[in-house]
Simulated assay, not measured.
Amino acid sequence: MPQIFTATADTRLRAVLLLLALLLVAAVLFAGGYMQSSYATLVGWVQDQPVPFSHQHHVGGLGIDCRYCHSTVEVSEHAGLPATEVCMTCHSQLWTGAPMLAPIRRSLATGEPIRWQRVARLPDYVYFDHSIHIARGVPCVECHGRVDQMPLMKRAEPFQMGWCLDCHRNPAPHLKPPEQITRMDWTEWEKDPEAHRLYGALMMKAYGIEPSTLDDCSMCHR
């Protein structure tokens, strides 16, 4: 009876199976690494804007409160983006002929709103309400980082589900006095971790925050 397989067929089959296994492991590692990389999370990336607005100058230098431009953050699920009229409140008097502000002047003349590019964008299937977080004392810096140190706005956090769940499952360390939610520098506050822990525990009780309910799927996927 003629021999169907060569003497090395078994060796070649084993080599192919080993190669496939290695490729599968490499694919899994690559996918995991990619999801944690800045290419996927966009952490540290700057979005091109029609006007190079500097939070470092306006917030850090001039001390403008976040709510001056993001005026609906306390009452709506959306923080809101500044209308042209908000910009022109100051720039009708200051730097009126600056070339970089030409889009603002054109917007005012034509009535066409400025198309700002969202930096902290969540997927459409994720529900997030700014107002409830602000009301409970989650400050802007928790999600958006030290915008007062950003010449151009960039994403500070990954906004992935695991990152959100970490906070929902242990909210206390992230809670601050609601009247100070736009404060950027909490260095002095964090020098007393015990007081911070006690404050977080007290606010959890006062607001009736139950972490066991905050990681329910329907909380963010509605």
Rank of each mutant, 00 (worst) to 15 (best):
T89I: 02
C90M: 08
H91P: 03
Q93H: 05
W95C: 00
T96K: 07
A98R: 13
P99N: 07
M100R: 11
L101R: 04
A102G: 02
A102H: 00
P103F: 01
P103V: 04
I104E: 00
I104F: 09
I104T: 13
R105F: 09
R105C: 07
R106W: 00
L108T: 08
L108D: 07
A109Q: 08
G111L: 14
G111Q: 09
E112C: 00
P113A: 03
I114D: 07
W116Y: 13
W116N: 14
W116M: 12
Q117T: 15
Q117G: 02
R118H: 14
V119H: 12
A120S: 10
A120H: 15
P123G: 08
P123Y: 10
P123H: 13
D124S: 11
Y125I: 00
Y125S: 13
F128P: 04
F128V: 03
F128E: 01
D129F: 02
H130W: 15
H130I: 04
H130A: 15
H130E: 08
S131T: 07
S131F: 11
I132C: 07
I132Y: 01
I132Q: 09
I132S: 13
I132T: 10
R136F: 04
V138T: 15
V138P: 01
V138L: 12
V141I: 10
V141N: 07
V141W: 04
V141H: 08
E142P: 06
E142F: 10
C143Y: 07
C143W: 01
H144A: 06
G145Y: 01
R146G: 03
R146V: 02
V147E: 08
V147N: 01
Q149M: 10
Q149P: 00
M150R: 00
P151S: 12
L152S: 03
M153N: 09
K154Q: 14
A156D: 14
A156T: 14
E157W: 08
F159P: 06
F159N: 08
M161P: 05
M161C: 04
M161V: 00
G162I: 06
G162F: 11
W163E: 01
C164P: 00
C164S: 10
L165Y: 10
D166W: 03
H168R: 10
H168F: 10
R169S: 12
N170V: 06
N170C: 05
P171T: 12
P173C: 07
H174C: 13
L175W: 04
K176Q: 04
K176S: 00
